[in-house]
Design a protein around this nucleic acid. Structure first.
Lengths: 115, 115
DNA sequence: GAGTATACCGAATATATTTTCGGTATATGA
DNA sequence: TCATATACCGAAAATATATTCGGTATACTC
């Protein structure tokens, strides 16, 4: 996450949690990684609406925050894998709750957000 | 929420849920309103880091999304109150889970985000 | 009459975030 | 030799979001 001029008060536990997952793709990335480690190219196939660049940027932040772990294999062509960390996996119940909420209430927002 | 040029795929339940609460102040607003209806001026006192303007904008979106209900009292000076709706209250377990997570892991991020 | 408080809103500006584009490097296969 | 695939990154542009400023209107108190 970029540094804000006026930094958010992260003493608030809600703000702290939100700051870790509230970007456009982070929660989706965590949701994808729950089933096992993935390479960046696999992640892009799973989330085709996200550009490789933005996945790269957000994976980097997730690693910095300790929610995801990166493994580099010294091969050519290069290979790396990203896996959810034990800290990151503690967020899964929250992700699950949001998925369940979205499924339960999708109809309410169906018309509103229909493309 | 402002309309995106390339609209997000809200068929994904996770993205749908996130889209409703992932702005800077919405989750905080919902958290404040859980204890009862509040007037805009009260909300601003409770969340002094948020400007009245941004609270106004985000309350408007929360009302549009059906998560918050607005009551206008025909008095002068004007008075209005915002209350969490029954739909909005179904988000409270998610908010609670995020608060609990933030409390549990605050130490991990203490140094990182210390001002 | 001047100051205060209320809720709300338009518009310009500032900031944050994402996207787009192109480039690094190296091995493989056609 | 040329195209492909891999992961990654810098920089500019585009977009999204938040902030700042000032203004609307009204009734109250001093």
């Amino acid at each position: 996450m970029y540094e804000r001029k006026i930094p958010v008060d992260l003493d608030c536990p809600l703000r702290l949690t939100m700051s870790l997952i509230d970007s456009k793709w982070k929660s989706c990335i965590i949701d994808e990684l729950r089933h096992g480690p993935m390479r960046p190219s696999e992640l892009h196939k799973a989330l085709p609406e996200a550009t490789p660049r933005v996945l790269d940027l957000q994976l980097k932040e997730l690693v910095e925050d300790g929610l995801v772990e990166k493994t580099i294999y010294p091969e050519l062509p290069p290979r790396s894998e990203y896996a959810i960390s034990s800290l990151g996996s503690t967020l899964i119940p929250i992700i699950d709750a949001m998925i369940a909420w979205g499924n339960s209430h999708a109809e309410v927002f169906e018309k509103k957000y229909r493309r």
